[in-house]
Amino acid sequence: MADDLKELKIELSKNGIFTTTLEELYNWGRKNSVWPLTFGLACCAIEMIATTMARYDLARFGAEVFRPSPRQADLIIVSGTVTKKMAPQVVRLYNQMPEPKYVIAMGACAISGGPFRDGYNVLRGIDRYIPVDVHIPGCPPRPEALIHAFMTLQKKIDEQALRGESRPRHLHADAPSEFPVPEFGAHGLEPAQNDEVFLNETGNPLRVIQ
């Protein structure tokens, strides 16, 4: 929005006239009804459950409805260790979610493999296969950390433009909505990472428009 329009809006609100844009209204509605998928992988899921209960009460942020089907979910919280045997299922669930969809990688294991990083069976971070919006470190992160991640995600949703080149992935017609599911190979998952998504050590990733 142009600066003079912003000033006009502030000026109007000073005089008791509330104005908004379609984009702001749209993002306001979306960020306050992010429905996560009922999906827990390991001990971080216990913290996620605690976050939704009365003491921490994620319902305050409009996320109390944990949907049991990916078709109805906006957000997948990858809470816990992703084993190589589970990784294809996680990617497939993500693929089945309708756009716009978001990912929170919760805990050391989900972001990097954590203490099991050198194990033969643990995926070293789910961001190898699907685009992650918010990473939370911690082993496990406290419910406050998850709430903070959730607020970060809300802020991110709030800043998404409806038009223009900087608009998010789900508004680009040619950006992918499904990501390739890794296959079980002879020595590990194939491919080991999706280079379209993964920020690898070359430092020059071909990132999906986020």
Binding site: S69, L93, N95
Partner: peptide, 18 residues
């Protein structure tokens, strides 16, 4: 605004990841 993006996996019947 939002383009439709159907896909073979997205439209699969079974929705448990397998």
């Amino acid at each position: 605004f939002s383009p439709q993006k159907p896909g073979a996996e997205k439209n699969a019947t079974y929705e448990c990841g397998l």
